[in-house]
């Protein structure tokens, strides 16, 4: 579904990604872990071209994003949801409008249908009673669940999660992770950058360890955590587990 070939990204002299190649299949739940500064967030943000790669190819459903006109790129992004560390809800809009804005303004559905869909999603994330409130009135965990609902409103084929629980108070991490687990169980294709090792172990179909701008090791979670090969991964796991 997503095919990455020789992806590199540099900011001036700083080489963040040094040649990443991988393929993500439909239905996979790929969890990316690694020390901070390893390039994992940059890698994720390159997948929907929020960051423009310095070189390399990224394809999504057989179409090469890196060779596309900007107009087509926006159409592709409709199918690639993204959830951010700091939520980035639209503070001037009600929760309902946050969810319906994109589908309505992109002409995918009329407001009435979008509202119905928003209700459905709000029930799914357990925040139906918040529809007419504003983002500032919600807790961090609630905001992130709304952000997930907002990306689901576009019926994406894949959702990219950029450290979705890193900005949350510890007691709110669980509610977001359990929602993500639910999505995973429903078969959503997911790419998740996170520090939640428990989530990686239980939900991932594949865990990817990044360090110094490379994918150093990737494997099924069982093998990945019990039998790591690379010395840097061993050291990393010994520190975080």
């Amino acid at each position: 579904m997503i095919c990455v070939e020789n992806l590199t990204k540099a900011y001036g002299d700083l080489q963040v990604l040094k040649g990443i190649s991988t393929t993500i299949e439909k239905g996979e739940k790929v969890v990316v872990i690694g020390p901070s500064g390893s390039g994992k967030s940059t890698f994720l943000r390159c997948l929907n071209l929020l960051e423009k790669p310095t070189s390399g190819k990224i394809s999504f459903e057989g179409r090469e994003l890196t060779a596309m006109k900007e107009k087509e790129l926006y159409a592709v992004r409709e199918k690639m949801g993204m959830v951010f560390q700091h939520f980035h809800l639209f503070p001037h809009l009600t929760i309902r409008k946050n969810i319906t804005l994109a589908p309505v303004k992109l002409g995918l559905m009329p407001q009435a249908d979008a509202d119905k869909k928003a209700e459905e999603l709000l029930r799914k994330v357990g925040l139906f009673d918040k529809a007419d409130q504003y983002p500032n009135q919600l807790s961090g965990g609630q905001k992130q669940r709304i952000a997930i609902a907002r990306s689901l409103a576009m019926n994406p084929d894949v959702i990219l999660f950029d450290e979705p629980t890193s900005a949350l108070d510890p007691e709110m991490v669980g509610e977001v992770l359990s929602l993500m687990r639910e999505l995973a169980d429903e078969g959503m294709t997911m790419v998740v950058v996170t520090h939640e090792m428990g989530f990686a172990r239980e939900v991932a179909s594949r865990v990817m360890f990044m360090d110094g701008g490379y994918i150093v090791e990737e494997n099924a979670p069982q093998e990945f955590f019990t039998n790591p090969q690379n010395p840097r991964l061993k050291e990393f796991l010994s520190r975080v587990l």
Binding site: E70, Y74, A75, E78, F84, H88, F90, S151, M154
Partner: peptide, 14 residues
């Protein structure tokens, strides 16, 4: 916040 632009872009809004 630049995140607002990114949130818009990630939803397919040009």
């Amino acid at each position: 916040d630049n995140g607002q632009f990114e949130a818009g872009a990630s939803l397919g809004l040009n």
